[in-house]
Design a binder for these strands. Structure first.
Length: 195
DNA sequence: TATTCGATGTGCT
DNA sequence: GCACATCGAATAC
């Protein structure tokens, strides 16, 4: 097997730590007979209680319920009437923490990603944003709450490589903007570039 | 049950 | 750089 899923306890650590460690890992999607894969290059951490930007901040609701499950499952939410975003739930059951996957570098199945994205031509535009990534990988609400060790969608080990991690303020939020919970791989062209 | 609004992307200027 | 599409969950009433 080319892609080895991460161990279940990877997701139970501190959320910021998991967000940093997810950089360079591989997101794998079994798409019918095809395999789509990409390297994670950008993440953001969302921390339950102290973080007003987190969906889990007001407490458990119907929408954010998966965030309160045990780490290691997907939390997928619908936003702005058009788009899905893909999160990885972290820490122990009842916490309400997650890591938003903001961007990836396509590795395999690029032709299929282009097909899913319609008229987008440049490879660099395929997955450099949370909603773009979901469209390219064919991720939607069907994957909400599923385990990230499942066969259809999972997170796998990455290549053994060195890179610098940049820490920055998060993007696209109206509250909790002061937290530096955004992490990305330095000089990687697939990082979403909004400032 | 009515209204508000968002962890975005796209297209036009 | 800026407006806007579009929908379900949350919140207000």
């Amino acid at each position: 097997m080319r892609f080895k899923p991460l161990p279940a306890d990877f997701y139970l650590n501190n959320t910021v730590e998991v967000a940093r460690q997810l950089l360079g890992k591989t997101i794998v999607r079994n798409y019918g007979k095809k395999i789509l894969a990409g390297k994670i290059v950008e993440t953001e951490a969302y921390i339950d209680k102290i973080d007003p930007a987190s969906h889990s901040h007001p407490g458990i609701t119907k929408r954010n319920k998966p965030m309160f499950e045990k780490g290691g499952i997907a939390y997928i939410y619908f936003i702005y009437g058009n788009y899905y975003c893909f999160n990885i739930v972290t820490e122990r059951k009842g916490k309400g923490c997650a890591v938003l996957i903001r961007a990836a570098e396509p590795i395999e199945g690029i032709e299929y990603m282009k097909k899913n994205r319609g008229k987008t031509k440049s490879v660099y535009e395929l997955t450099n944003g949370p909603a773009k990534l979901c469209l390219s990988f064919g991720i939607d609400s069907k994957f909400n709450s599923i385990s990230l060790r499942s066969s259809k969608l999972y997170i796998a080990e990455g290549k053994d490589e060195n890179f610098d991690i940049v820490t920055a303020k998060r993007v696209g939020i109206t509250r909790g903007t002061e937290f530096e919970y955004r992490f990305y791989i330095k000089n990687n062209p697939f990082v979403s570039k909004s400032k």
